[in-house]
Amino acid sequence: NMECRVCGDKASGFHYGVHACEGCKGFFRRTIRMKLEYEKCERSCKIQKKNRNKCQYCRFQKCLALGMSHNAIRF
């Protein structure tokens, strides 16, 4: 039983190089595919399941810091 490295929810698998839940997987995919840019935040918000949708900037930064990558495809 793995935990999502981004928000701590139950991970659904290994997505983009990191154990992640469906919510964070979809969030990362949409951000990359649609080339979304979020308003910069300096607060280093703590991303948890209950508040993961509050600060998209910090959520995406955490995805990147954990090594999530669009190129991380498993063979």
Rank of each mutant, 00 (worst) to 15 (best):
29 R>S: 15
25 K>C: 12
18 V>W: 02
67 G>H: 02
55 C>D: 00
31 T>E: 00
29 R>N: 14
1 N>F: 13
68 M>A: 04
14 F>H: 10
41 C>Y: 01
53 N>W: 09
21 C>Q: 02
72 A>Y: 08
75 F>M: 08
58 C>V: 00
16 Y>T: 06
31 T>I: 04
25 K>P: 01
13 G>E: 06
56 Q>I: 03
63 C>P: 02
10 K>G: 08
34 M>N: 15
61 Q>E: 11
16 Y>R: 04
15 H>K: 03
59 R>S: 00
66 L>K: 12
17 G>C: 01
44 S>F: 12
2 M>S: 06
63 C>Y: 07
45 C>G: 02
58 C>F: 00
35 K>G: 13
75 F>R: 13
25 K>V: 14
25 K>H: 08
33 R>Y: 12
3 E>I: 11
73 I>G: 15
59 R>F: 11
55 C>M: 01
22 E>R: 06
54 K>R: 09
40 K>W: 05
59 R>E: 00
17 G>F: 03
8 G>K: 04
21 C>W: 01
6 V>K: 02
33 R>S: 15
5 R>L: 12
10 K>T: 13
3 E>W: 08
15 H>R: 03
70 H>R: 13
5 R>M: 14
58 C>D: 02
24 C>F: 05
19 H>E: 15
1 N>V: 09
5 R>W: 09
27 F>Y: 00
40 K>A: 09
55 C>E: 00
10 K>S: 09
28 F>D: 01
24 C>Y: 02
19 H>A: 14
58 C>P: 00
72 A>F: 07
16 Y>S: 09
43 R>E: 12
65 A>P: 01
17 G>E: 07
38 Y>E: 01
75 F>W: 15
73 I>P: 15
62 K>N: 05
3 E>V: 08
74 R>E: 15
47 I>D: 09
60 F>V: 03
32 I>R: 04
64 L>I: 11
56 Q>K: 07
56 Q>G: 12
6 V>P: 00
4 C>D: 00
33 R>E: 15
67 G>E: 04
70 H>A: 13
56 Q>M: 10
28 F>A: 03
50 K>G: 13
39 E>P: 14
58 C>Q: 01
50 K>S: 11
74 R>M: 12
46 K>Y: 11
59 R>W: 15
47 I>W: 06
57 Y>V: 03
71 N>V: 06
27 F>I: 00
65 A>L: 10
37 E>T: 09
69 S>D: 15
47 I>N: 05
26 G>S: 12
44 S>L: 11
5 R>D: 13
74 R>T: 14
24 C>E: 00
62 K>T: 07
66 L>Y: 05
68 M>R: 02
65 A>F: 08
30 R>Q: 13
12 S>L: 05
41 C>N: 00
5 R>T: 12
16 Y>M: 08
75 F>I: 12
38 Y>N: 02
23 G>C: 14
47 I>A: 05
18 V>M: 11
44 S>P: 09
30 R>I: 06
5 R>S: 13
19 H>I: 12
33 R>A: 15
34 M>P: 03
11 A>T: 09
61 Q>N: 05
12 S>R: 05
75 F>L: 15
38 Y>F: 09
59 R>H: 12
16 Y>P: 04
22 E>D: 09
20 A>D: 00
70 H>G: 13
13 G>A: 07
51 N>D: 14
3 E>D: 13
23 G>N: 14
33 R>W: 09
27 F>T: 02
26 G>V: 12
45 C>Y: 05
1 N>A: 08
69 S>A: 12
11 A>G: 07
28 F>Q: 01
63 C>K: 01
59 R>C: 04
67 G>C: 04
56 Q>W: 06
49 K>M: 10
63 C>H: 00
38 Y>T: 03
4 C>K: 02
37 E>D: 11
34 M>R: 08
24 C>L: 02
11 A>V: 06
7 C>P: 02
36 L>E: 09
72 A>P: 12
51 N>P: 06
18 V>K: 01
26 G>P: 00
57 Y>N: 00
56 Q>F: 10
61 Q>S: 07
4 C>V: 00
44 S>H: 14
38 Y>H: 02
35 K>Q: 14
25 K>E: 15
43 R>P: 08
18 V>D: 05
31 T>V: 05
29 R>P: 00
45 C>D: 00
68 M>G: 01
22 E>M: 08
74 R>Y: 10
25 K>G: 15
60 F>A: 00
20 A>G: 01
20 A>Q: 01
25 K>N: 14
39 E>K: 13
35 K>N: 13
12 S>H: 07
65 A>N: 11
69 S>Q: 14
28 F>K: 02
65 A>G: 08
66 L>V: 14
11 A>E: 06
22 E>Q: 06
74 R>K: 14
68 M>K: 02
7 C>G: 04
24 C>H: 09
30 R>N: 13
30 R>P: 00
3 E>K: 10
12 S>M: 06
72 A>V: 07
60 F>G: 02
36 L>S: 07
41 C>D: 04
71 N>R: 07
22 E>I: 08
21 C>T: 01
13 G>T: 07
45 C>K: 00
67 G>M: 04
9 D>R: 05
60 F>D: 03
45 C>H: 07
50 K>I: 15
2 M>V: 08
9 D>S: 08
52 R>G: 12
42 E>Q: 09
75 F>G: 15
11 A>C: 05
57 Y>L: 02
72 A>D: 15
17 G>H: 02
42 E>K: 07
38 Y>K: 02
18 V>S: 04
62 K>S: 03
12 S>Q: 09
22 E>V: 06
50 K>H: 08
29 R>F: 15
60 F>Q: 00
11 A>F: 07
20 A>I: 12
51 N>K: 07
2 M>W: 04
69 S>E: 13
47 I>S: 06
6 V>S: 00
57 Y>I: 00
75 F>V: 13
46 K>L: 13
65 A>C: 06
74 R>S: 14
66 L>C: 09
22 E>A: 07
43 R>G: 10
17 G>M: 08
63 C>E: 02
7 C>E: 03
9 D>M: 05
35 K>E: 13
71 N>F: 04
44 S>R: 11
25 K>I: 13
2 M>R: 05
62 K>W: 03
50 K>E: 14
62 K>F: 05
44 S>A: 11
46 K>V: 13
73 I>W: 09
13 G>R: 05
8 G>E: 06
38 Y>V: 02
15 H>V: 07
51 N>S: 11
30 R>Y: 11
1 N>I: 15
68 M>W: 09
39 E>S: 10
32 I>M: 09
46 K>E: 14
51 N>I: 12
3 E>Q: 11
56 Q>C: 12
24 C>N: 03
17 G>K: 01
18 V>H: 02
19 H>S: 13
38 Y>Q: 00
19 H>G: 08
16 Y>H: 09
1 N>K: 10
52 R>N: 10
23 G>M: 12
62 K>R: 08
63 C>R: 04
51 N>E: 13
59 R>T: 07
75 F>H: 15
50 K>C: 08
6 V>H: 00
73 I>S: 14
1 N>W: 03
32 I>S: 04
68 M>S: 02
69 S>P: 04
35 K>A: 11
29 R>V: 14
20 A>P: 01
54 K>L: 11
43 R>L: 13
28 F>W: 08
7 C>H: 07
2 M>H: 06
4 C>I: 00
32 I>H: 05
31 T>P: 00
57 Y>P: 00
13 G>K: 06
12 S>C: 09
36 L>I: 15
53 N>R: 08
71 N>Y: 06
56 Q>L: 11
64 L>E: 05
39 E>G: 07
27 F>K: 02
69 S>Y: 07
23 G>Q: 12
21 C>L: 00
29 R>Q: 15
31 T>M: 04
68 M>I: 02
5 R>N: 14
6 V>M: 03
1 N>L: 04
34 M>G: 11
12 S>I: 09
16 Y>A: 10
25 K>Q: 11
39 E>N: 07
4 C>A: 02
